[in-house]
């Protein structure tokens, strides 16, 4: 606990299996990319520190498993999230179609006080594949979807080529910071010092 104000943001990464969530993480945090696919089991946790204006921010990134069998971890994983990164593969239509479910599921489980204002971001990943020739989801289609969800910021990324990865995470961090309410409710919420049942006799003599 240092004297300087530091902020920790819980970032949840969601999307179908194989869209490149873990690869984006590895590129963003470790600056590494591996062609090999390894399914995430449950969740991976990585942290990344960055400075935004004069604030030190730590991103606690929850890289979740895309497979359905891990969805039962929902509530516990989403609790207290500050922002949510949705990822799809621009070359796989189904991964785009299921965004609707991920979005809905997240809001249901995390249950943020103001769902419309909750910071999401959408990443269309793997734009490098085949020079873009195998892509099936157009940028316009993705942007339209984002607009329908309350203007979610959209980034096209390539974890492999490290394209737009830093920019996307910086964007989500800023959005989460902007959504952060100052936490001054604690001191208002403290009840007056009250002694239960055994109330002392008399007042003070002063």
């Amino acid at each position: 606990m240092s004297l300087r104000r530091r902020t920790l943001l819980k970032v949840i990464v969601l999307g179908d299996s194989g869209v490149g969530k873990t690869s984006l993480m590895n590129q963003y945090v470790h600056k590494k990319f591996s062609q090999q696919y390894k399914a995430t089991i449950g969740a991976d946790f990585v942290t990344k520190e960055l400075q935004i204006d004069d604030r030190l921010v730590t991103l606690q990134i929850w890289d979740t498993a895309g497979q359905e069998r891990f969805q039962s971890l929902g509530v516990a994983f989403y609790r207290g999230a500050d922002c949510c990164v949705l990822v799809y593969d621009v070359n796989v239509m189904k991964s785009f179609d299921t965004l609707e479910n991920w979005h809905e599921e997240f809001l249901k489980q995390a249950n943020p006080p103001d769902p419309r204002a909750f910071p999401f971001i959408l990443l269309g990943n793997k734009i490098d594949i085949d020079g873009g020739n195998s892509r099936v989801v157009s940028e316009k289609k993705a942007k339209d979807w984002c607009a329908s969800k309350g203007n979610i910021p959209y980034f096209e990324t390539s974890a492999k080529e490290d394209y737009n990865v830093d920019a996307a995470f910086l964007c989500i961090a800023k959005a989460a910071l902007a959504n952060e309410h100052e936490q001054d409710i604690y001191f208002q919420g403290i009840p007056e010092a009250a002694v239960p049942e055994n109330e002392q006799r008399g007042g003070c003599a002063c």
Partner: peptide
């Protein structure tokens, strides 16, 4: 309960955010 670190005897809490998340995941699981 959301996995955010509050105190660690050793090391810097923020740098242990990933570890902290792991602990929450175990408990919540």
């Amino acid at each position: 309960h959301s996995g955010k670190p509050i105190y660690s005897r050793y090391g810097d809490e923020h740098r242990l955010a990933g570890f902290s998340a792991t602990l929450q995941a175990i408990i919540s699981f």
